[in-house]
């Protein structure tokens, strides 16, 4: 079985967003897309070293796009109608689209609703079967206070990113039973800070 390397990892929260400088249109993105994009930018990876169509994106969103859904629906009765921009972000895959657009990544995409356990095995499968050479993995946890009241969940706003590559020089090899992407990102991030 060919080796897959973890090249870089990052974790960002809402507190990091005001410092983000990711173009004039960053403000238009919903919070989940902003966090996902910032997490991927924080990987500090030069994606241009690979062909854009050989880089996949695999994302999971713990609460889908429900925070933006609630936001969109709260604006339904305003004069002029609800926001067309917000509607475009009422899909968890909007964050995948924004990452693809920003970094010009035209490879295959996967997007799930739920916890982070599905991301690494599916990204590894994509790489092993040759569907891509590298994969940007993203786990988004976004629940606004308004959304939290609807689904009885505590508010959260964070994103974790990991870059996987077939046979690359990296931090370490991806192991068969690596599932906890969030914990892995935190661990690598800590090690990096300590070093």
């Amino acid at each position: 079985m060919s080796e897959i390397s973890i090249i870089a990892a990052s974790t960002v929260t809402a507190a990091d967003l005001p410092l983000a400088r990711l173009g004039q249109r960053f403000g238009r993105l919903d919070q989940q897309s902003q966090l996902a994009l910032l997490a991927v930018a924080s990987l500090n990876v030069n994606f241009d070293e690979l062909a854009g169509d050989r880089i996949g994106i695999c994302l999971a969103a713990s609460a889908g796009s429900l925070s933006t859904d609630v936001n969109f629906w709260n604006g339904r009765d305003r004069v002029g109608g609800p926001s067309p921009t917000l509607f475009a972000y009422t899909l968890p895959s909007a964050a995948v689209g924004e990452v693809a657009i920003h970094f010009r990544l035209t490879g295959p995409n996967l997007c799930f609703v739920g916890d982070d356990q599905v991301i690494l095995p599916e990204a590894a499968d994509l790489l092993r079967r040759g569907g891509a050479e590298a994969c940007v993995c993203i786990f988004c946890e976004v629940v606004t206070p308004e959304c939290g009241r609807v689904i009885s969940a505590p508010p959260v706003a964070a994103a974790h990113a990991l870059f996987l590559k077939n046979r690359g020089e990296g931090i370490r090899t991806l192991r068969e039973f690596d599932r906890d992407m969030k914990a892995l990102c935190a661990l690598i991030f800590q090690t990096k800070s300590a070093g």
Binding site: D53, A100, R104, P108
Partner: peptide, 11 residues
């Protein structure tokens, strides 16, 4: 199955 992204525009 084959998948791709336009990396062009959101909608």
């Amino acid at each position: 199955f084959g998948g791709s992204n336009d990396a062009n525009h959101l909608t």
